[in-house]
């Protein structure tokens, strides 16, 4: 194992280029699509002129370049360093948004760990709360909705796993978790339909009917409601809302109490 050559630090004079030249070269490379070259230029500014005005802008540009290259961890690091040094600055919203996007791009399939969904929600929520008037708020909210749908999707996937094995207690609690915690996601329709199935299989017909009624009430033309209705028909039952039941209360929360 060869030893690394000793470096004589006196000779290590750092070559200093003017920051604005470096910054413009970085931008040119970025426009030209040469991302690695652009990143190197921005990092050179940070190294040679730390804490200067150009260094500040280079830092956030570098975070963007790393994000475009798909190096999400580095993008998050660069952006977080920017936020800790210049918390009140005008590019802070953008830096926070980059962090959210970096986590968002790493969200995995619902059968795998959803920690990136949770991180994306947290970061995007920070954009919405801290920088309410920035132009990134609208997309941040869209990303939050998608990430929440992923989390709901994971609950559904586990719920279906237990439903197939006819372990109804586990299934009902998982689907119920979706209806209560993720009501405004696309998954809630299926959650209600699965609750109809689970309760019906258990023999708890009034629960099944209430679930179907809430589903029909909120999503009358959804295919899930049609299936649930057909299922209840086989037992000669009608979706009848039992107003006291939790499902109808959850349904009310869905569509607002007066509707």
């Amino acid at each position: 194992c060869q030893t690394e050559p000793d470096i004589d630090i006196t000779a290590l004079a750092s070559d200093i280029d003017p920051p604005d030249v470096l910054y413009n070269q970085g931008l040119a490379n970025l426009q030209g699509g040469r991302l690695t070259e652009a990143a190197r230029k921005f990092e050179a500014i940070d190294r040679q002129h730390p804490y200067s005005e150009f260094a500040r802008r280079a830092l956030v540009m570098n975070a963007f370049v790393k994000y475009r290259q798909g190096d999400y961890d580095e993008a998050v690091n660069g952006a977080s360093r920017y936020l800790s040094l210049y918390p009140g600055d005008q590019d802070a919203a953008y830096a926070q948004y980059i962090i959210g996007l970096s986590y968002f791009r790493q969200i995995r399939d619902v059968t795998q760990d959803q920690r990136d969904s949770a991180r994306a929600i947290q970061a995007m929520q920070a954009v919405v709360d801290r920088y309410p008037d920035s132009e990134y708020v609208e997309d941040a909210q869209a990303k939050i909705r998608f990430a929440r749908d992923q989390l709901a999707g994971k609950e559904m996937q586990v719920g279906r796993y237990y439903l197939e094995r006819r372990e109804y207690v586990a299934a009902i609690n998982r689907f119920r978790n979706v209806v209560e915690r993720y009501p405004n996601t696309r998954q809630v329709e299926e959650a209600l339909a699965r609750l109809v199935e689970a309760n019906y299989a258990l023999g708890l017909t009034d629960e099944a009917q209430t679930a179907a009624a809430v589903l029909g009430h909120n999503y009358p033309d959804s295919q899930w409601y049609a299936d649930s209705y057909a299922l209840l028909q086989t037992g000669g039952l009608q979706p009848r809302e039992n107003t006291g039941s939790w499902i109808s209360r959850a349904g009310a929360a869905l569509i607002g109490p007066d509707a």
Partner: peptide, 21 residues
Amino acid sequence: YTLQDGRVFDLISRTTPTGGR
């Protein structure tokens, strides 16, 4: 309620699409 009250039927195979890599 006992096993007799339960119904046996095949579940809906369709699932709501989700994203993620």
